[in-house]
Simulated assay, not measured.
Amino acid sequence: MDALLTLPQLSAFLVAAVLITLAPGPDNLMVLSLGVARGREAGIAFGLGCALGCLSHTALAALGISALIAASAGAFAALKLAGGLYLVWLGAQAIRNARPFGTTARELPADGAAKLFAKGLVANAVNPKVILFFLAFLPQFVAAGRSPGVQIVQLGLAFTLQAALIFAAIGWFAGIIGQWLQRRPAIGAWLDRLAGGIFVLLGLRLIAAR
């Protein structure tokens, strides 16, 4: 029981975590753009994948592997390149498979929820900036005198849960807007390309970031 988070400790952490998750960033921007372009199911599925990708960062932080990655410039650069290229690839695929002008969303096959969930999971898991964020953020809420590894795991689980709820909400509301826009074929076609372009730009930004 000594390793469990206290209520004040968890409350302070959740306030900070929610504010950070709501702040404009790559994850919620991708969920928003995908929800608008492809509907609620797509936005929610991708958002839940992004949220559960935080579990891998929690495990890395608890095991201390994040510190090793942060200390190795080569490992960080390789992971940054891999993450950026993956986002660029997702964006290029979205642009290539965008619906033709004049075609509605219902006339085209879309990625299933499981596939979008997997894409969100990988997109978050290979982002080295999130790895370093967890390494820097979680330990700030670890109380001295109790098992730090167990506390980090609990904090990571709490972060993942609140991120899942927020990203699902973003996907849901973005989908409502998207459904209205997709009834206008010309706008729907541009939304597909815009979503793909956002993924490409985020990938290039990650690759170029110092």
Rank of each mutant, 00 (worst) to 15 (best):
A78W: 07
N97V: 11
G84F: 11
K80M: 06
A82F: 11
A75I: 05
A105M: 10
A105Q: 10
E107W: 08
R99D: 10
A78V: 09
L87N: 02
T103G: 10
A70Y: 01
A73E: 10
A92Y: 04
L79I: 00
T104E: 14
P100C: 11
E107N: 11
R106V: 14
A75V: 04
A82T: 11
F101Y: 13
S72T: 01
R99G: 07
A71K: 03
A70T: 01
R99M: 12
A105E: 11
A78Q: 01
A75E: 04
A92V: 14
L81I: 09
P100R: 13
N97I: 10
N97Q: 15
F101E: 15
G102I: 12
R96W: 15
L108G: 06
F101K: 12
N97P: 08
A105G: 00
N97R: 15
A105T: 09
P109V: 08
G112R: 01
G102K: 10
L87C: 07
L79Q: 08
A77W: 07
L87A: 05
A105H: 10
L87Q: 04
A75W: 09
F101A: 15
L81M: 13
A78T: 08
A70N: 03
Y86F: 14
V88H: 00
A77C: 02
L79Y: 00
L87P: 01
A82W: 07
R106L: 13
W89F: 13
G84D: 09
A70P: 01
T104N: 11
G102Y: 12
A70Q: 06
A105S: 11
T103H: 14
A75T: 01
A73T: 05
G84Q: 09
G102F: 12
G83H: 05
A71W: 01
N97F: 14
A92M: 09
I95P: 06
D111Q: 01
A71S: 12
F76K: 00
L90D: 02
F76M: 05
A110G: 08
N97C: 13
